[in-house]
Design a protein around this nucleic acid. Structure first.
Length: 553
RNA sequence: GGGCCGGUAGCUCAACGGUAGAGCAAGUGACUCUUAAUCACUAGGUUCAGGGUUCGAAUCCCUGCCGGCUCACCA
């Protein structure tokens, strides 16, 4: 099954190209109306990496339209492909449905979808929509075949079967038997398509045998007979189906992932079939690389790289788009969100390019084409880029700290940082980021990003406290016992007052407090942190941490 | 075995024929001071190796090494 298929010919973007120049260069190199196409087998969960193709597709479409070219974006669902992975089926369904077209398998989730294929296609359609990717039309091969639109291509493929076999042998080094025909009949007895083999084309019908041993992953029922391959009783094998789609829909540009782009791979075969069997020049190709997680291919079974819908819960749409847009398509993207600050950095870089796009001065060098990168990352293709870029965006890392401090009015703090009330758009952006921050802390954040008051016992890290700091903590405990500070401000004042009275630098004072309560040398606003805790606990902990060396437990 | 991408500072990457640079991390200091903030400064590189082309190579060519993905059955 394909991850997804997509790739620009001759040229991915050349070296030295600006980061989004690849899309603009492609747009500049074509003339007339364009049809951009991709299709996917709806076989299961969508990984984050499989979003790269759709994002590239969408950026290309936007670039073409920006140039004023009439452009249609198509997305196909190859739901006549047969089920070939047991793991995707519930155990009781394996026997019955292996080898059956995905469109003919009941929805395993039992949530009202018409079929297995519809269920899974819907999940990725939803994810696309969330990323601002809206194909002009989705087409379903299970709908297309019964209309008879594919029949002319099936007929041509059968008439030129020898040419097809030759292409397979020549281009892909795959040797089919001389009687093999390039068509997959849906068995009228058991409904499987992956187990049938057709032969003896007489111009109207083919001989069909549903073989128990044709493939290892499914068992045919043994049916034999003759059938017409038209009107939905059959499907073309993948490489021919692909080429037929190009002719059927007039596709002019079709990117594809590098799994298909390899020499002798699917794209080469389909290109040859388009030229030699269907007499049509294949669309412009545009190969793109994958997304690796921690140097490895992503895989949910290895716990790496979440499913797309889960990833997008943490990384909002525009940052997800940005992740893909800012790298050239032919470069592998290395991204490891697990236990790293990769996600906060992604936000920081997005914000930096936004600030630069708004004309503000930013630190560091900017990638070439940074304004385009920012623009193509936005959800709305018609957004007012200047206005969006100029909006205030609180730093992800800072929010991650604020949300963990009890009693903080985050919105007020953010407005204070901005120095002005937030606009409606900024308030909405803040809400989005807060949700992302919470999800990140829950799912990906490294431990060092998490704050936790060590209520159960004095953190071992507190052993590093110096005697001056211990004295300070004891003095603060005494002061707190006497004055009973109740508010963050009162605690704050007490922290400074006691530090001054003990001749301790405030930096060392805060350091002592963080070690005593959090087991780390820094943290959130200490006065407010202490005020949020039970006072008796605070005083006990101050005394415990303040015990002279040797007496501390 | 074939194809593609890559190997530049601790990490992520940029320079793509003209003096090797950023961000983050690290270190120092400042802010009469909350601190994962901000600011200033510092340090850190035989650009994987070896040949070649060139006035000049991280960059172009060849060879090799290393890493990753991918294809070779189906889709």
């Amino acid at each position: 099954m394909s991850e997804c298929r997509f790739r620009v010919e001759g040229a991915g973007p050349g070296r030295g190209a600006s980061s989004v120049d690849w899309a603009d260069e492609l747009a500049a190199s074509v003339e007339g109306p364009q049809v951009v196409n991709d299709s996917k087998t709806p076989s299961g969960t969508v990984h984050v990496g499989s979003l790269r193709g759709p994002v590239i597709l969408d950026v290309i479409t936007r670039a073409l339209r920006a140039r004023g070219l009439e452009t249609t974006l198509l997305y196909g669902v190859d739901d006549m492909d047969s089920m070939d992975a047991q793991a995707l089926l519930t155990p009781d369904a394996v026997e019955r449905y292996m080898g059956v077209p995905l469109a003919h398998i009941p929805d395993q989730a039992g949530d009202c979808h018409a079929s297995y294929a519809r269920h899974h296609a819907q999940t990725f359609i939803d994810v696309f929509a969330g990323l601002g990717i809206h194909p002009d039309r989705y087409y379903w091969m299970s709908d297309i075949y019964p209309t008879g639109q594919v029949d002319p291509f099936i007929r041509t493929a059968l008439d030129r079967a020898a040419v097809v076999r030759d292409i397979y042998r020549r281009v892909a080094n795959v040797q089919h038997p001389d009687h093999w025909l390039p068509v997959g009949i849906v068995c009228p007895s058991c409904g499987r398509v992956g187990t049938t083999i057709a032969s003896d084309w007489d111009g109207e019908t083919v001989a069909v045998h549903c073989r128990p041993d044709l493939v290892t992953w499914a068992t045919g029922c043994g049916w034999t007979g003759r059938l017409s391959p038209f009107g939905g009783t059959a499907k073309l094998p993948w490489n021919l189906e692909w080429a037929a789609q190009w002719s059927l829909f007039g596709v002019t540009i079709e990117p594809n992932g590098k799994d298909l782009a390899t020499a002798g791979g699917s794209r080469d075969r389909s290109d040859a079939i388009a030229r030699e069997v269907f007499d049509r020049e294949p669309p412009r190709n545009f190969p793109y690389e994958f997304l690796n997680i921690g140097g490895k291919k992503m895989s949910t079974s290895k716990g790496r790289g979440a499913a797309a819908h889960r990833f997008t819960e943490v990384v909002p749409p525009e940052q997800t788009r940005f992740l893909f847009v800012r790298h050239r398509p032919e470069s592998v993207i290395e991204f490891d969100p697990e236990g790293t600050d990769a996600i906060p950095r992604l936000f920081d870089e997005f914000d930096r390019l936004g600030a630069a796009t708004a004309g503000r001065e930013v630190k560091g060098e900017l990638p070439s084409g940074h304004a385009s990168i920012f623009r193509y990352s936005l959800l709305d293709p018609d957004a007012d880029v200047e206005a969006v870029a100029g909006a205030f965006r609180p730093a992800f890392g800072h929010l991650a700290l604020l949300v963990q401090v009890p009693g903080v009015d985050v919105a007020a703090r953010v407005a204070a940082e901005k120095g002005a009330p937030l606009t409606d758009a900024e308030t909405a952006e803040l809400a989005t980021r807060l949700a992302a921050v919470r999800a990140w802390l829950e799912a990906y954040a490294p431990d060092r990003a998490r704050l936790e008051v060590r209520r159960d016992a004095l953190p071992p890290e507190a052993a590093a406290l110096g005697n001056d700091q211990r004295g300070y903590l004891r003095a603060l405990a005494d002061a707190a016992a006497e004055d009973a500070p109740a508010t963050g401000e009162a605690w704050h004042a007490a922290i400074f007052a006691v530090a001054a009275a003990n001749g301790l630098e405030s930096k060392a004072a805060f350091n002592a407090l963080y070690l005593a309560f959090l087991g780390r040398p820094n943290g959130p606003r200490a006065g407010w942190l202490l005020a949020s805790l039970d006072r008796a606990f605070v005083i006990d902990r101050l005394r415990e941490a303040g015990s002279p060396v040797g007496l501390a437990s």
